[in-house]
Design a protein around this nucleic acid. Structure first.
Lengths: 136, 136
DNA sequence: AAAGTTTATGCAACTGAGTTGCAAACTAAT
DNA sequence: ATTAGTTTGCAACTCAGTTGCATAAACTTT
């Protein structure tokens, strides 16, 4: 638990039992998960607490949220150094077959030439298709 | 109305009074609108009918939907020739100030080098920031 | 044109994600 | 231990999207 604790405190999040559990679950995941996915990992749990835990994590940039168009926001761990600035952002992939959402962590979002006088804060880029796992 | 009718029939949509009205409203818009935005353009209207109208339009590729992360899907007219294939797609912009969502119709979505064995069907790219209107 | 078939519309009612308010439980600090 | 601040759990709500079903309108066939 020490490791988990450190991750929390280093992001200025008070390490409670609940938060440790949630962070551990998030760490195990190979793919992004939604609030209700998370809820189902617990036998008995309160959606609201999990909701607020995710919000806190997101605020403190421990995780980032992905709107993959399925109607449920997904969450995935940020890299250690991530500040969620445009230069930290990567492309996400949603597989139409297995319905999973992944971070393509090593594919940065390509920069865009916006019209004059437009400024950027954030970019959400989700590619939908079939992942390598489902493609054979 | 002849023009509106033609647009509908050319996309294989039976031109009803309702659909003409909706298409006209969509044509007037400079920005993408949501179902509830659309609903408010009518004095008396049924959300479900509008909902199904939008669904039909989208299916027939008369309009495309934009998930801008606000929680309500926005819709905007497609170009005449649009088939909503990856090569037809463009970037969308959401202004954090005026809360409006635009098509950046002349900014195509940059192509991405996906990992091996991944195939693409669709890409959603929404840039969030401040638009030129709100930036001075 | 009348009867029958298909398609579109309108109403009610529901689902599911996300959210708020409040009280109880917990934590930290004096 | 007492207090102040934070976190958790429950109830209850909002709002977008959706389904079922009955009526109305449009098309088809005789």
């Amino acid at each position: 638990m020490k490791d988990t604790d450190d991750k929390l405190t280093s992001r200025n999040i008070k390490p409670t039992a609940m938060r440790e559990l949630v962070l551990d679950i998030l760490t195990e995941q190979k793919m992004a998960i939604s609030l209700s996915d998370l809820e189902q990992k617990f036998h008995k749990s309160d959606k609201v607490t999990l909701y607020r835990t995710l919000k806190t994590f997101e605020e403190k940039k421990l995780i980032h949220s992905i709107d993959d168009g399925t109607g449920a926001i997904k969450y995935a761990l940020c890299k250690e150094t991530c500040q969620c600035h445009p230069e930290d952002l990567h492309v996400h992939f949603f597989c139409l077959k297995c319905q999973h959402t992944f971070c393509l962590s090593n594919i940065p979002i390509p920069s865009i030439n916006l019209p004059v006088n437009f400024s950027v804060e954030n970019i959400n880029m989700v590619v939908k298709g079939v992942c390598s796992n489902c493609n054979d």
